[in-house]
Design a binder for these strands. Sequence first.
DNA 1: TTGCACCTATTACGAACGTAAAAGGTTTCT
DNA 2: AGAAACCTTTTACGTTCGTAATAGGTGCAA
Lengths: 120, 120
Amino acid sequence: MISDAESRVMEVLWQTYPLTADEVVAILDGHVEWQEATIRTLLNRLLKKKAIAADRDGRRYVYRPLLERADYVHAESKTLLDRLFKGRIAPMVVQFSSRQKLSKKDIAELKRLIEDLGNE
Amino acid sequence: MISDAESRVMEVLWQTYPLTADEVVAILDGHVEWQEATIRTLLNRLLKKKAIAADRDGRRYVYRPLLERADYVHAESKTLLDRLFKGRIAPMVVQFSSRQKLSKKDIAELKRLIEDLGNE
DNA sequence: TTGCACCTATTACGAACGTAAAAGGTTTCT
DNA sequence: AGAAACCTTTTACGTTCGTAATAGGTGCAA
């Protein structure tokens, strides 16, 4: 429901909000190669999709997210897992680690998680 | 590069190949609600994208995958991880488990993986 | 050999996307 | 008041996607 380009804008608002359109543009500048007009279009599409809200602030609007990042992230993750790994996370991790060496940090984090899950 | 609908067709061919268009249609029947024509369109788009190949077999074609599932799966996973988790898998697992209880099977599998990775 | 059956290839069409320019409405400066 | 500046809202346009229908070619039965 939220497109790739739109999610770039969401990321900005998840980081800080409220922001004016100009501020969003400023933050994205250098990271993406979009014209200001493009970013305004994306803000409007997100508005129409109720992913963000706009509050009037004097003569301009300030935008803030309505959709929460955690919900979005979970939905996207679940879609991918369902589509490619029958909904299970372990096979994804296994597959991933067979292609790309996990960092020490990753291993440590996973280890800790497993331990926590184990003795609860 | 490969769309959602197209990947449904790829899954069929990854499972068994070569297959005629009719066979693909037969296998998908009941799983998706597409007309035969739709599936043929998808096969042609996949051909154009070089994701599959068609070999003439008498008066018809048999299709087989060119793109390997493991490559596709890895690419898709990586894209998602990069976009949402800065490329790291552990945060994804942590996030996921905070939203959705991991099955015993998942936990066991992860545990085994971690152990294998640990002492190598 | 001619029409039919059976395939494949071409064309269609609306919605969503990426990307952006143009038009409109308010302040504000002069 | 009129023009300029600054925002927002509309409109645009080429692609890709989902979903199909139709046209085109070829071997086989009559």
